[in-house]
Structures are given as structure tokens and as C-alpha cells.
Amino acid sequence: MINMIIDGKNVTAPKDTMLLEAIRGAGISVPTLCAHESVSRSGACRLCVVEIKKGNRTRIVTSCLYGVEEGLIVNTKSDRVKNVRRLVMELLLARCPESDLLQKMAKEMGIEAQPRFTPDTDKGTCILCRSCVRVCEEVVGVSAIGLFARGSRKTVGTPFMEQSDACIGCGACVYVCPTNHIVMTSTGEKRKIWGRNFKMQACSKCGKFFAPVDQLKFISKKTGTSMEDLAVCTECR
């Protein structure tokens, strides 16, 4: 076990855990937007920053990516930390003024929108946390979506911003999106996501439309299970 002092409290954490888990394990809350449990971490949102002290040196680190270290002194509420979090929230509120999640978080943190920033109207509620892109690559394994361009023009989407052949319509990206930015509409036999229509499979037992045919084909190919076996919904299995 590793011993640390977090916000003045002695805290122990298993070796190889990240600071974020150690801090939360000690009952201290840390806001995050991009550290989804299903995917690897990128350190993109910067909300989880904390101040650490090693010897005489203090610095700001990303707690979701920083491994625990013996003797580390951690401050999760220093002025520098609060200042970074405030700025990140102000910037995100200006980018995605319509996001309910951001509004709620800001309220909890006591942060208001910065009136000097003109709110964006073209970004929807996408905060570019990359959870969708990572789940599509790491969990689903199709990499149908990606992060294109760079800087302030960065966007999430399908290649060439056209319908993607790689997408299987599974909706995992929708599931991990913290701000409900990705739109998926399901109307019985049809599902639409990333601009493409998917035919839904009806359960061979109860008749309910339960998954896109393309998703089942992908699973069939990957696992060798026959399409007939896959054509049964989870409830009827």
C-alpha cells in the first residue's frame, strides 16, 4: 500500500492506482467529464487536476492519469486548482450553453457563465471528451468515428463527415456521451445514428426490434455465432 496525505488526511491506496481513485476513495469528490469507466483515459477535460507537493516543488497534475506515489502531499482544493476548474467550466459553459449536465455541475461548483465570452451556437453539447471515440475503438472495436481537424476546429464525426460503412449502429457512443450530444433515433424497425439508417432485427421469439442487423452481423463474424442464434433478444434468451 502507498501512503499519502490528501487534503491533510492520511490516505492509503493500492500500488498502481491513479490519484483520482485514491482521492475519491478517501471520500473527497473530484469533478470529471472525460474519465468514463469503460474507456482508457486521455486527460482532456482537465477538471480533475490537483496540486501535488514533492519535496519543495508543487505542481498541478491530472489526477486521472497520475499514479499514486509514496509520501505524496495532495491538495485538491488549492487556489490554483480551483482557478483551473473555474476556467474550464467557464470555457465549457460558453462552448455548450445548452448542456444540462454542465449547468448542473457549474451550479454545484458555484461557478457562473463568464459574460465576456460569446456563447457558441454551432457546437451542440459536444465537449470533445472523446469517450465516444474511445468506446468505438476500444470496446466495440470498429473505430467508425474519430476526432478531426485540430485546435478550435476539432470535431467528432465519421470520416469525410459521410455515412460510415464501419459503423454498426450499436449506440455505445450514445451510451458513454456525458452530455447527450450524439443523436440516435429509433423507430421500431429503423434506427438512425451518425446520419445513417440501420435496419433493426426483430426478435425471432417475441418480435421486438432489439438490435441493428449490422451489429449482429459484426458479432456473428467476430464470435462465429450464427445469425439465427443472435436473432433472439436478451430477454428471450
Binding site: 470555457l91 465549457l92 485540430r150 485546435g151 478550435s152
Partner: peptide
């Protein structure tokens, strides 16, 4: 810098842009 920021993290992507706007 706004053009050259990779756009991954919020402070650089959004913060530099807002500074430039001001």
C-alpha cells in the same frame, strides 16, 4: 497558437480561442 493547438484539452483549445477573441 489557436490554429496550432491540437485541440485535445479544454484550457488550450477553448482558452486560447477566447483570449484571441478578446
Amino acid at each position: 497558437l489557436q490554429e496550432e493547438s491540437c485541440g485535445k484539452c479544454v484550457p488550450c483549445r477553448e482558452g486560447v480561442r477566447r483570449m484571441r477573441e478578446i
